[in-house]
Design a protein around this nucleic acid. Structure first.
Length: 426
RNA sequence: GUGGGCGUAGCUCAGUUGGUUAGAGUGCCAGGUUGUGGCCCUGGAGGUCGUGGGUUCGACUCCCACCGCUCACCCCA
């Protein structure tokens, strides 16, 4: 027999225990926090019609231009694996007529996203995101709550050394003015920009600010910040967001160069960065997208959200040596010694599981020594030895693994004996 | 898409100017205890040396190609 394939597809990976338990733990934190902030789960498909992403994310973004997994199904409809969560959530929001219902609505999602990029540290082709989206309010208080949820998430995970970078990029009223001013300042010096910035100068001059190229940095060094060109509404919003953040004690750093890659953002944009990740250090990022719902064919409903890269967050924890110690996942191991029927173990195991305990047993007919070793390795608190001699008299040996103490108890009171011992250690 | 680094047991890695049966640690299995884990001792299983080709009397070692992994650019979570 030859193997089907030697390895997982490039950019994808397997999560095995005990790592999988770290994922459950982190996802549990996300869910708990969302409950506290009253965000409810939405589950949207992993693939959508291609146009959902083209319209939602923007035709000229890198994601749509070159990073999507696009394919045709058997009826030759064009589909794409979702490269991010927001577009699908907006589609669902509209499809179910939610703009006509009670607003605001606050959703969260958890699941895989797909982008065709060269993998590197903290970047995969299939990666896991935790995201939130809130529709129907322009209130700066919502901006503050979203950012607060983001920082609370990193706190709860135990990430240390993170920071919030914050900026505003205005709205359709004021951004054109800023854009115009940028063009006036940059055009004369276009020859000093890097190749990619020269090409994006006309298309999306704001992104030149974001460039890390030394030469571009010099050119943009003395360019005014977006906040100097805000319209009065955006300026008020921007002030209110900052006041709100200060009011709830969230430290942030205004980063005028922070421009997001997706077309749909307006006003508030932010990024949370964490240490230990090499160059992919943005672990959670988002912003306001007040024009997106309308852009996708719905009414003018404002929105705001963020997405967190779970792979990067867990990687950052590992790098910082803050990974959690694996907790034991087994309470009782049932072993047999001598001529004891398999059905005896089956019954004991089942009885204990009915009480809610986590129970496993030996399936290989191994020596008692080997069985105890297996119990130890699995982290069992107790091992029950069904010994031939004791079993014949209706008794079972209960061994407490931590101390090695053993006691022989009657079969009839076994459940109770196990329960009192486990509760004592719990 | 572009560039750098790396591919030897399940894992982490040695392998000396190319030389004959490719090693260690760890993990796994078993024995030391005819029914008792964690420490210790002993033994065992486990490798197409990434793949293909070339040079050579001889290649894990040198050369070429390909594949894969990885880091970085780009971009992004």
């Amino acid at each position: 027999m030859s193997r089907v394939a030697a390895t997982a597809v490039r950019g994808t990976r397997d999560v095995l225990p005990p790592e999988s338990s770290s994922w459950q733990w982190a996802e549990g934190i996300a869910r708990r926090l969302c409950a506290q902030y009253h965000f409810q789960e939405i589950r949207t498909p992993i693939f959508e019609g291609l146009e959902v992403f083209q319209r939602g994310i923007g035709e000229t973004t890198d994601i749509v231009e070159k990073e999507m997994y696009v394919f045709q199904d058997r009826s030759e409809r064009w589909l794409a694996l979702r490269p991010e969560g927001t577009a699908g959530v907006v589609r669902a929001f509209l499809e179910h007529g939610l703009p006509a219902g009670p607003l605001p609505v606050k959703f969260f999602y958890l699941g895989p996203m797909f982008r065709y990029e060269r993998p590197q540290a903290g970047r995969y082709r299939q990666f896991e995101q935790f995201g939130v989206e809130a529709f129907g309010s322009e209130s700066p208080a919502l901006d503050v709550e979203i950012i607060s949820l983001g920082t609370a998430f990193l706190e709860a995970l135990g990430i240390s050394g993170w920071q919030v970078q914050l900026n505003t990029i205005g709205c359709p009223v004021c951004r054109p003015r800023y854009r115009q001013r940028l063009l006036e300042l940059l055009r004369p010096r276009a020859d000093q920009l890097c190749a990619s910035c020269q090409s994006r100068l006309e298309r999306n001059p704001l992104r030149v600010l974001d460039c890390k190229e030394e030469s571009c940095r010099r050119v943009t060094a003395d360019v005014p910040a977006p906040e100097e060109y805000l319209c009065s509404e955006c300026a008020a919003h921007w002030q209110a967001v900052q006041e709100g953040l200060r009011a709830v004690g969230i430290l942030y750093q205004v980063t005028p160069r922070l421009v997001r890659g997706l077309d749909y953002y307006t006003r508030t944009v932010f990024e949370l960065i964490a240490p230990g990740l090499g160059s992919q250090d943005a672990v959670l990022a988002g912003g306001r997208y007040d024009g997106l719902v309308e852009e996708m064919g719905g009414p003018a409903v404002p929105g705001i959200g963020f997405a967190a890269g779970m792979d990067r967050l867990l990687l950052s924890l590992e790098q910082g040596g803050q990974g959690r110690a694996a907790e034991p996942e087994l309470d009782v191991f049932v072993a047999r010694a001598g001529d004891v029927p398999e059905t005896a173990a089956l019954q004991v195991v089942q009885e204990l599981r009915k009480q809610g305990w986590r129970v496993d047993q030996d399936y290989l007919g191994r020596s008692l020594k080997a069985q105890l070793k297996a119990a130890d390795r699995a982290g069992a608190q107790l091992t029950l030895v069904l010994g031939e001699a004791e079993w014949a008299q209706g008794q079972v040996v209960v061994r407490t693994m931590a101390t090695g103490e053993q006691e022989t108890v009657n079969r009839a009171v076994l459940t109770q004996a196990v329960t009192t011992r486990l509760q004592r250690t719990a």
